[in-house]
Computed example of a mutant assay.
Amino acid sequence: MNANKALWEKGDFTRIAESMRASGEAIVARLGITPDLTVLDLGCGDGTTALPAARYASRVLGVDISEPLVAAGTRRAERHGLTNLTFQQGDASDLGEFPDATFDLVLSFFGAMFAPRPSEVAKEMVRVTRPGGRIVMGNWIPGDPTLVAQLLRISSAYSPPPPEGFVSPVTWGIDKDVVERFTGAGVPADDISFARDTYTFELDASPSEFLATFKTYYGPTMNAYQAAEANGRAAELHAELEELFTSQNTNATDATTCIPATFLRVTVDC
């Protein structure tokens, strides 16, 4: 079975996505999407950015490796009456079913960065984007002190070594790696720009309860706990993550959680 597919079909990412809705809507509102645009959202999950994009664009297609997330996104589109929004299962590194120059705007916020074969991901994103169109990615940054980068760092420290040839997803948060991938896909370096941006996780639950959601429903964290348990280090991992979630919470009360996380926003003009 496709290991990436298995990872994102483990647990239930919709439970994490509930804390991401407001920032997803805010990001989309700043993208300048107009009613004449056709949009592809890669690694879309259940539609955190695809759904608000559909309120601006003529047509939005969400593609995700996880079939349960595609089904969840379809249900959300139906509930909101968005007939111009559809979801389908697919792999960001192989979009062969789409002809060249199909989309005006290709989005991927914390999605395509997790696909294997990053150079192929860049080539496919460029190939399906129309001349004059844009690609906009949001990618977590390695070594960043905020939540997600630290969660992935801690989780990897308790997990088995990755297979040979594995390329870390957070290399998509390194400017020079991103430039190398998109120039390799034929984009001039001057047409690739970067900005640091903030994504905020918000929910009516304590940081401990938020961590419990990751432990129960987020594939990478689930794998880390399983590996730590097998090595007798589960309590150590849990203590480290409790400290992370509690210290990152900016709310004055522990009854609610608001955690900002820094990411690299990549814009590619095609």
Rank of each mutant, 00 (worst) to 15 (best):
I174C: 10
S208Y: 12
S193A: 15
N139W: 12
Y199H: 14
R196C: 10
P160T: 02
V148L: 04
A157G: 11
I174Y: 10
L151D: 01
L147H: 04
A157K: 00
W172I: 03
E180P: 03
E164K: 15
P163V: 07
P188S: 11
G173T: 00
P188I: 08
R181F: 03
A195L: 11
P207T: 02
P162T: 03
G143E: 04
P160A: 04
L203R: 11
F166N: 05
D175A: 15
D177H: 12
S206V: 01
P162R: 09
P161S: 13
I192S: 10
G184I: 04
R196D: 15
G165A: 13
L152D: 00
S168W: 11
R153V: 01
I192K: 12
I192P: 03
S206N: 02
P145Y: 12
S156G: 12
E180G: 13
L152S: 01
P163H: 09
I154S: 00
A195W: 11
P161A: 14
D177K: 11
G173Y: 03
G186H: 10
D204S: 13
V179A: 07
D191C: 13
V148T: 07
E180S: 15
W140S: 00
P169K: 07
L151I: 04
S206L: 05
W172H: 06
A189C: 08
R181A: 03
V179R: 14
G143F: 04
D197R: 15
A149W: 11
D144Q: 10
Q150K: 12
Y199S: 00
V179N: 06
G184C: 08
D191I: 05
P163I: 06
G173I: 01
S206P: 00
A185V: 02
R153Y: 09
R196M: 13
P162N: 04
I192W: 12
R181P: 01
F182A: 13
L152R: 00
P160W: 06
L203T: 06
S155D: 05
A157Y: 00
D191P: 04
Y199T: 01
V148G: 01
P162F: 06
V178M: 09
D190V: 07
T183S: 10
N139G: 10
N139P: 05
I174L: 15
F194S: 05
R181C: 03
V179F: 05
V178G: 02
V148E: 01
P142M: 11
G143V: 03
N139R: 11
D177N: 14
T198F: 06
I192N: 11
V178R: 06
A157M: 07
Y199A: 02
G143L: 05
L203F: 06
I154E: 00
E164I: 11
S155N: 11
P169V: 07
Y199C: 01
D191A: 15
F201M: 04
L203P: 00
T146S: 15
K176S: 11
D190K: 14
S193W: 10
L147M: 14
S159K: 08
